[in-house]
């Protein structure tokens, strides 16, 4: 994208001129930044077509208006021009070619963690009616309607739903991904600077949907570790019964839990999707073969390292297969 750099820079200055409430234009991490660059690139490229159209329209409508004193040429039979048509079949094809190339490149790039030399953090996200449950498999804690993450660390959000399908979106960190019952999807995000980032469900789920707000709080690794320790010491545990209560349709504020039932996340996926994933269980070695790049680069923190994945090899495989269907692979 080197050739576009100066244009992109100019445009970046322009869009950051908008206030901080334009969250998509003020990304706080590499994923959001990549997406913003692509947004700007696409806006510039289509400008090449749209601006001439607007100029031409105003010029032509004014120049060839039907007024008695208008002496502009009038050629009622003129209706063919090979080279003009070649221009406007050709130019858009070239533009789409360029845009298509960068689109493909970025689409594949976003399936990988933003930084490959830092050990990523995994957070399992479950959308419920009408709240968000975050489980930290490695830390053993859980939260509702907010989560904390360390800055500079790629975060692997593994998404599912125990309610109608929703979509997990934190505009300042990056684009969204659906949460679906019976499926595990993966979304890589990363925050580079500390802050509290607004997040919301983006796919309609009924009456309480408008209140499905959550926050992602990014702090330094130190503060993050302190926070985890504090939650572990002070918060109540999330029990199986507690999860069932959480599952009931309601709108609620934040909550934190010092622990959660082992295997809860995978069990949720399994309970709602296991039956139609039958065919996939017969494929041996699925959990390894679907992780050729991500798995190796991240030191095996993907599906294979889920604490919940211990229950059985076949569940493992199913979850692994489904996770492979995140933004990429």
């Amino acid at each position: 994208m080197r050739r576009w750099r100066w244009l992109l820079l100019a445009a970046l200055v322009l869009v950051t001129g908008c206030g901080p409430e334009y969250q998509v234009l003020h990304p706080a991490g590499p994923v959001g930044r990549t997406e913003l660059r692509l947004i700007i690139l696409s806006a510039i490229l289509i400008g090449i077509v749209v601006i001439p159209v607007l100029v031409l329209l105003f010029y032509i409508v004014w120049r060839y208006r039907d007024k008695p004193d208008n002496h502009a040429p009038y050629k009622p039979e003129w209706s063919e021009s090979k080279w003009l048509e070649v221009v406007w079949w050709g130019v858009p094809i070239v533009i789409i070619g360029i845009l298509g190339f960068y689109t493909g490149q970025t689409t594949f790039a976003l399936t990988k963690p933003p930084e490959s030399d830092v050990k990523p953090l995994t957070i399992d996200v479950t959308s419920l009616d009408w709240k968000w449950l975050f489980e930290y498999p490695d830390q053993g804690i859980a939260t509702v309607n907010y989560c904390e993450i360390p800055t500079g660390v790629p975060v692997q959000f593994v998404l599912t739903s125990d309610a109608p399908m929703n979509s997990f979106w934190v505009p300042q960190l990056g684009g969204q991904e659906y949460t679906m019952p019976g499926m595990a999807m993966r979304l890589w995000l990363q925050a580079d600077r500390p802050g509290t980032y607004y997040g919301h469900g983006a796919n309609f789920t009924g009456k309480g949907f408008a209140h499905m707000q959550f926050h992602v709080i990014a702090t330094s690794q130190n503060k993050f570790d302190q926070w985890v320790a504090r939650v572990k010491q002070t918060a109540p545990p999330l029990t199986k019964a507690g999860y069932q209560r959480l599952k009931q349709p309601s709108v609620m504020g934040r909550a934190a839990y010092s622990s959660f039932p082992k295997g809860l996340f995978n069990a949720t996926i399994w309970a709602e999707g296991g039956r139609y994933m039958d065919g996939m269980l017969d494929m041996p070695g699925m959990s390894e073969s679907t992780e050729p790049e991500g798995g190796a680069a991240t030191g095996g923190t993907a599906a294979g390292a889920h604490p919940a994945g211990q229950s059985s090899a076949s569940q493992h495989a199913a979850a692994g297969m489904k996770m492979a269907m995140g933004h990429g692979e």
């Binding site: 997406e35 947004i39 289509i46 969204q176």
Partner: peptide, 29 residues
């Protein structure tokens, strides 16, 4: 005549939406 600029802009934002990674940010917004 009013259709042309309106549709040109609408079509342009359509191409922007077609850029899959950018769409992760626009989708359902």
């Amino acid at each position: 005549v009013a259709f042309v600029p309106c549709f040109a802009i609408g079509g342009a934002t359509g191409v922007m939406l077609a850029v899959a990674p950018a769409d992760y940010q626009y989708h359902n917004s």
